[in-house]
Each structure stands twice: as C-alpha cells, then as structure tokens.
Design a protein around this nucleic acid. Structure first.
Lengths: 195, 195
DNA sequence: GCAAACATGTAAGAGGTTACATGATTAC
DNA sequence: GTAATCATGTAACCTCTTACATGTTTGC
C-alpha cells in the first residue's frame, strides 16, 4: 500500500475518504456534501475533487471506481472506498495534528493599512462585512447539523449516527466564529467612528 | 502604469507596498515586520517576499531598489515605494473587498470525521490545541500594538501615528479569535467527555 | 572561535483559482 | 421548450511550501 506521501496536509484526500467511508458516491455528490459541511472550513472546487478522486484511485487504490453503464448516457462514476483507503483514513485520524492552522483573512491587512483611507469608506466596507457574517450566522443557526445524510442513509449504516455529535461540534465552531466576527466588527466600527 | 492584473488577491504585493509606504526597507526587514504583525492573518515565506519585491520592481516599477554598495560586503537591497506604487496602494485601498475570506482550519475536518476515533486520542489532540491557542492568546495580550515601528520612525513620519489605532484593531481580532477558539475547545472537550 | 542573527536568493513540486468545455436529466 | 440542476472533465496560471544554497555581521 502506497502511503499518501509527506506533503503537508492532503486534507482534501482525507475528506473524500471520510465521506466515501459513509457510503459510495459520485464526485458530484461529494462536491454537494462538502459544500454543505466541511467546505465551511476547508473549501474545494469541483476541478480539485474530480482530479483528486482519480489520484486516490490511481496512486494507491484507496478508492475504486465504477462507471454506471446501465442504460443511460449520463456517465456517473461511483467511487467506493477500499480497505486500503479505510486503513489510510484511520491512520491519518490516528496521527494527531501538531500545529495550529494559520488565519488568512483579507479584511485584516486592509484594515491594518487603513490609516490613509477615508473613514466613511472604511465604515462602508466594515458594515458590508457585518452583513455578510450576519447572513452566515443566520445560515448556521438555521441548521441542526444532523441533516447531512438522509435518515435512511443513517439508518442503513448505524455507525453514522455516532458521527453526528462531531458534525455538530464543527457547526458550533462556525456559529461561534461568526458571532466573534460580528462582535469584533461592531467594536471596530465604533472605534473607527470615534477616531 | 501597469495595473497589478486581475488575479484574486495579490495580497502580499499590497502588504509590501503598505509597509514600504511607511519607510524604505530591505526584504529581511519586511519579513521580520510581517512576522510580528500582518503575518498573524496573512503569512508569507521569505522566498515569496524576495520574489514578490522583484516582481513589484520589474513589472510596474511600483518600488525602486538600491543595492547598499558602500564599503561592506553584505548586499542589502533597500526597497523604496515609487509614486506609481503609492497610487497602486491607494487604489487597492479604495476598492472595497466584496467577499468574505474562507475559513481553513485543519482541526475541524479531523473532528468532523472523528466518530471512528478513540475518545482519549481526540481529547489529547483537543487539549494540545487548547495549549497552542492559550499560548497565542498570551502572546497577543503581551503586546500593545503600537511597538511595530520604533518611536523615532513614528516621530520622523507623523502620518504613521494615525495608523496605530488600525494596527490595534487587527490585534484585537487576534485576541478575540484566540478567546473564541479556547472557549469552543473547552465546550468541545466537555462534549466529547460526555459522549 | 562560535553561535545567533542578518541577508538574499533559486528551484521543484503541490495546491488553489478561474476559465473553458460538453452534454444529460428533471421540473415547469 | 427551456431553465435549473445534474454530471464530468481539462488547461492555464498563480500562490504556497519545502528544500537547497550561500555568505556576512554581531555579540559572547
């Protein structure tokens, strides 16, 4: 079994393995699922997903692929995790993450160099981002965290039920991040107004 | 004047222009300054800084460079922002950022797929990250936000004094992010223990 | 003398972003 | 019919990360 190699991260590969470990899926389904879950803290484009699935298949046989050749013309490729893929996923989960991720927030370097700017323009920008984060918070508050897979899918694979609390913990991160950001924006808007 | 082109971001270019707008500096000084300020929310390697400075000089003459050829053998290159560079910086600051940045946090996809893991191992990892964020918070709380440039540098260029409140707002973001993260980790550790 | 900090680069490879490209199926 | 959604891919280009590479100056 080929190890996935040493380059830092390979996060997308493990996310794909993680979802395929729930059930076989197409790249499109994976994209949709990611967009509604892990994508909030690790985004991926469809162009990455399709190429990474091929890599998982070709260099390591961590997934297997089956073209749905029935009677239709829609060439859906259904990917299934292999036992090598499951072993790889478990190994990754077993090796603790040593370092914290770096924050990368475009608004902050802009604010950092804002001494030269028109205060009204800064405030407009901050208020615009306040609306964006408010929307995101409303979205996070509108979901419960367990609706990712259908009740049937969960019933069919009882192991998934044990995953739901962990999905909810990551959702709580999203909510708390949005609240912190809103809070910071409110304070920051007040600070700029007071300058 | 060449526009910096359309590719999303170019953040490092503007960060370099922003600092060079305070005073002329070498790449090494820029690296040190970034590491203690904007690097907390937009990191850059020295390999990027040196190559990006060259690009700023070569395709747009946004900075000018002068090799310190005095009597020493240390070839320090001192970069100075040009008026084209200042115009570019101001144009960037004038165009509001429309979209929010995406969160990218490695710990979260790991937690998301942690239903399969040993609870003790999850808790070890969470507690390790609690320590990391605690350290970061202590660091953020140990600085005031105004010590970035020397008092002489600030006195020599009074415009810089107006920047300090903005530096402090970004520092407050760092503190609030670290506090939010710690808080979330405490709740999450308790949740995992209770499962 | 030696270690830490100062100082600057190049190259290879991996990952991220945008654009181009195509076609099928479903719901209205 | 037609728009939205389903479905999959490639290419170009840019940024990020790691490793390699070299030499000077300062403080002890």
């Amino acid at each position: 079994m080929d190890k996935i190699t040493q380059y830092a991260g390979h996060m997308l590969r493990y996310i794909l393995l993680g979802f395929l470990n729930y059930r076989p899926m197409t790249g499109y389904e994976l994209k949709t699922l990611i967009d509604h879950s892990t994508g909030h803290f690790w985004h991926a484009y469809h162009s990455q997903i399709y190429t990474t699935l091929r890599k998982l298949e070709e260099d390591g046989r961590l997934v297997s692929e089956e073209e749905e050749a029935d009677d239709n013309k829609l060439n859906r490729r259904i990917y299934t995790i292999t036992s090598a893929g499951q072993a790889e996923l478990m190994q990754w989960l077993g090796e603790p993450l040593q370092e914290m991720s770096r924050v990368k927030e475009e608004l902050l370097p802009r604010l950092f160099f804002s001494g030269l700017r028109d205060k009204a323009a800064i405030l407009d920008e901050l208020r615009h981002h306040r609306r964006l984060h408010q929307q995101k918070l409303v979205y996070y508050e509108s979901i419960e965290g367990g609706e990712l897979l259908s009740p049937q899918a969960i019933e069919a694979n009882p192991a998934i039920a044990g995953e739901i609390p962990y999905w909810q913990m990551t959702l709580r991160f999203g909510r708390q991040y949005a609240r912190m950001y809103l809070n910071w924006l409110d304070e920051t808007i007040a600070s700029v107004e007071a300058l």
